[in-house]
Design a protein around this nucleic acid. Structure first.
Length: 848
RNA sequence: GCCCUCGUGGUGAAAUUGGUAGACACAAAGGACUUAAAAUCCUUGCCAUUUAUGGAGUGCCAGUUCGAGUCUGGCCGAGGGCACCA
């Protein structure tokens, strides 16, 4: 028998699909649209198994939706700016653009081998001028709307490499490349005013019904809305500032006030800069916080000033003012009122500096004399020791009342605070989108005129220069406009900006005038299903939501509020990890099994330690190269395996045996296909109705449709195996050819989203490839005529009776009484109660 | 510390949403075919004496119910997110 030759068959269909243009998408108002988008990849050079999983999931969905009659758009592009290109180019003495474009063409051909239903006409690359010129225009437009601004902010500064480091490049407080101790340095940087949309971004989450709850909760926590009160504390001391504002969520504990703590960057710190002790303290603070240990221990340190703050509700009480390391400048006002009895952090601080700890809330059920001892109490209760606030219920009633009093006295007011900070978009890097701004000779900020866009990234860059390469590219940096001299902004945009609007660009990738075309956006947006890794749950998704709101707000032209209607976060692909005797990581190809012990290949003495299964990563070498796998087993087999073992939202373990099994399964399926083909040809038109096959097929349509709708793709693969097992037995019987052909056609369509090449070949052989539609469920066939009734006695399953559908309780009881089991379990015992569930079970309660 | 999710055979997992627990697959053991191996096919799956039969059984303890993997409360364990957020 002929083997299934995936190599020729997959290639054949991939070429046919491209030639016929079946995946091309264009506006068609007669059809409902479906925009399916997977997070586009960074062109690192090769695709990895994570991509295979991500894009297979998206492809199954796209193909399924097409078969259902939707007008599907399924595009792909490249998140092509970013540091790896710069690093790789430096190491290999290459141009980042060349490196990136080479990677793109390689990865594109790899993706094509997976047989994805992608409309490649819509391909975009964020590092192309055609893409980033629109991004620069967006930047200017947002700037004009006041949504972009410049301010000084701290960065991680590597004093040896003279460069800014991302947080993940700082390891134990040192630069990853130079090893130098990282400093905090203030730089002027560009910011997007995302915090302006805090409330909107929070409210929008409620509309995202097709998002995982987990992601919505993560975003909600990230935005971090808190209700409270701002209070102005009068201060006494030898500085000109006589008032300090604090934000608090617990104004009701004001009578437990024992100190005021300020961030070292608080504006009044300038009056202490001459003080050497304060300077030392500030240095100390900047050291802690960078190392992970320091954060874990979280030791609280303070610097006591000679200032005193007055309790606004009790002017007789004066407390010391400290600078403290735990107060953040960019939350609230950078100042905290300390109530040690009811806040653990304040408690720790008060213990360390011997400050008073006055209890003002007692838990319900405690005596009036209750006192906080070993730890702060932050739960509910009743106010005590608080004069006119006594006996109020904490927290709701007491907070409300206190705010009323403070507002009345004009000392404070109700306030809502968000944790979400503005988005710093400046990167001191070469390989990114240039920021279209400049500075005149006086240092004033100037926009690059829109008709001068794009500001092109210069070629021939010296990547080995210290600091930002654009800074030393003086012929690019300096320019004249209308006879005046200017200096360009040398920072480039965070690559998250590129990915914040690419879903808009896919709708009209060739539009030269603007980032998108209104008509196309109106039709295609929003993305119906977005699919990607959960690691982007916060930043990328939040930034994209912001961008949609900001651009829509600017142009007042979007019919949608949110970019991604549905979100699916898939799990990672994991593999065991291996280390040799010298603790070096080994890849799966570098080991072999000797007996039941893994050893380094060709070195039997070097025993390999098998570590836990972890997400595939280059650093741990536990990677399987998809290209090798596709070459050995074919795309359909890989798709089958990657979908089969675990639900798509969970991590999946890579298994060589599982992969081989998927491959073998397709071979078996091919044999079955040839048998079925023969049977159909035999044209056996006996009159038997063959309801069994029709019913089974119908049930499978129901199951697979439901499982596709619910993203239970692993169960679909099980359904495919099940169907095979059934057909493989059924085929031995006499079957009406017409019924067989009809059912088999439907079954092939059901299989086709998962294994498209294989089924295309089969359909073609049967001559119906051009007219396929997702099969409909025949409701008349769905209900079985005979049903397995579970007979329980006192809740225990005792028998299963196959009886006709819709049988009533009495008839079923008669059957039970005439049945063997009644003699055994019922005998002469009387039945106290019968629970009868139609078409399902009957439960007889008897006295034992 | 706070928030979220999840605990089902040797393993990955199913379970029409309160109604036959373990579909489907991997691994293992036994068997068939074969001179043999590979490949393929079949059987087994925890405990009790047996292909039949009974019992226990979905992390642990209680509860609701005729009936709980599924609902409620408490505990234990694993994973993830935030991290001095006032």
């Amino acid at each position: 028998m002929e083997r299934y030759n995936f190599k020729t068959i997959e290639k054949k269909w991939q070429e046919k699909w491209i030639k016929s243009g079946v995946f091309k998408s264009k506006i068609d108002h007669s059809k409902e649209k479906f925009y399916c988008l997977e997070m586009f990849p960074y062109p690192s050079g090769k695709i990895h198994m994570g991509h295979v999983r991500n894009y297979t999931i998206g492809d199954v969905l796209s193909r399924y939706k097409s078969l259902q009659g939707f007008n599907v758009m399924h595009p792909m592009g490249w998140d092509a700016f970013g540091m790896p290109a710069e690093n790789a180019a430096r190491e290999n003495n290459l141009d980042p653009k060349e490196w990136t474009n080479k990677n793109i063409s390689n990865m594109k051909s790899q993706l094509k081998k997976l047989g994805l239903s992608i409309d490649w006409d819509r391909e975009i690359s964020t590092c192309s001028e055609e893409y980033y010129k629109h991004q620069q225009l967006f930047f200017l437009e947002l700037y004009e709307k006041g949504l972009v601004y410049r301010k000084e902010n701290y960065v991680n500064w590597d004093p040896v490499d003279k460069t800014v480091l991302a947080n993940e490049q700082v390891i134990d407080g040192k630069g990853w490349r130079s090893g130098a101790v990282v400093e905090r340095k203030k730089l002027n940087q560009w910011f997007f005013n995302i915090s302006k949309f805090s409330q909107e971004l929070l409210d929008g989450l409620d509309d995202l019904k097709l998002w995982p709850n987990k992601v919505k909760i993560m975003q909600k926590n990230w935005i971090g809305k808190s209700f409270g009160c701002e209070i102005a504390f009068k201060t006494e001391g030898d500085i000109p500032v006589k008032e300090i504002k604090c934000f608090t969520t617990r104004p009701d504990t004001l009578f437990g006030f024992s100190f005021l703590a300020l961030s070292v960057d608080h504006e009044i710190s300038k009056y202490f800069l001459k003080n050497k002790e304060f300077q030392d303290f500030k240095t100390e603070c900047s050291k802690t916080g960078t190392t992970e240990e320091a954060i874990a221990i979280g030791e609280k340190i303070g610097f006591k000033t000679n200032l005193e703050a007055i309790n606004p509700l009790n002017p007789k009480q004066k407390v010391p003012v400290f600078f403290a390391n735990f107060v953040l400048m960019d939350y609230g006002f950078g100042a905290v009122f300390g109530c040690p009895a009811h806040d653990q952090r304040d408690f720790d601080f008060a213990k360390k500096y011997g400050l008073s700890i006055k209890t003002v809330v007692k838990p319900d059920g405690e005596k009036e004399s209750f006192e906080v001892k070993d730890e702060a109490y932050s739960g509910p209760g009743v106010l005590i020791n608080s004069e006119f606030l006594n006996k109020l219920k904490a927290p709701e009633e007491s907070i409300k009342k206190t705010i009323d009093i403070l507002e009345e006295k004009k000392i404070g007011k109700k306030k809502i605070n968000f944790r979400l900070k503005d988005w710093g978009v400046s990167r001191q890097r070469y390989w990114g989108c240039p920021i279209p701004m400049a500075y005149d000779e006086e240092g004033n900020v100037v926009k690059i005129p829109k008709n001068n866009l794009p500001v092109k990234l210069p070629d021939n860059i010296d990547l080995n220069s210290k600091g930002n390469p654009l800074d030393s590219k003086t012929d690019w940096k300096n320019f004249t406009m209308n006879g005046k001299k200017y200096i360009r902004e040398t920072d480039t945009l965070d690559t998250f900006v590129c990915s914040s609007w690419y879903y808009l660009r896919f709708c009209s990738p060739d539009n030269l005038k603007y980032g998108y075309k209104q008509e196309e956006i109106d039709y295609w947006m929003p993305v119906d299903q977005y699919i990607g890794g959960v690691e982007h749950a916060i930043l990328h998704l939040l930034y994209s939501r912001f961008f949609t709101k900001a651009i829509g707000f600017k142009n007042n032209s979007f019919k949608f509020k949110e970019p991604f209607e549905g979100l699916f976060t898939q799990g990672m692909v994991c593999h065991e990890t291996y280390k040799d005797q010298n603790n070096n990581w080994l890849s799966p190809e570098e080991i072999e099994l000797v007996g039941n012990q893994y050893c380094k290949k060709g070195d039997k003495k070097n025993k390999v330690k098998v570590g836990p299964s972890e997400s595939m990563s280059k650093s741990k070498k536990n990677v399987i190269d998809p290209e090798n796998i596709i070459n050995s087993y074919g795309a359909d087999a890989v798709r089958l395996f990657i979908l089969s073992d675990s639900p798509p939202e969970k991590d999946v373990q890579w298994s060589d045996q599982g992969m081989v099994a998927s491959f073998k399964f397709l071979q078996k399926l091919w044999i079955l296909h040839t048998k079925i083909k023969e049977k159909i040809k035999n044209n056996n038109n006996n009159n038997s109705e063959d309801k069994t096959l029709q019913k089974y097929t119908n049930q499978m349509i129901n199951k697979i449709t439901n499982n596709l709708n619910g993203f239970n793709y692993n169960v679909i693969i099980a359904n495919i195996y099940e169907t095979y097992n059934f057909l493989n037995k059924e085929i031995e019987k006499k079957i009406n050819s017409k019924v067989l052909k009809d059912s088999y056609k439907k079954i092939l369509i059901l299989f086709s989203p998962a294994i498209p090449h294989f089924t295309a070949e089969c359909m073609d052989e049967l001559g119906f490839i051009d007219q396929i539609k997702w099969p409909k469920i025949d409701k008349n066939l769905l209900d079985e005529e005979r049903i397995d009734y579970v007979v329980q006695i006192n809740g225990k399953k005792r028998a299963i009776l196959k009886e006709s559908r819709d049988i009533d309780q009495n008839s079923l009881m008669k059957k039970i009484r005439s049945n063997e089991l009644s003699k055994k379990y019922l005998k002469d015992k009387s039945i106290n109660k019968i629970i009868f569930v139609k078409n399902r079970l009957i439960n007889l309660l008897i006295n034992e």
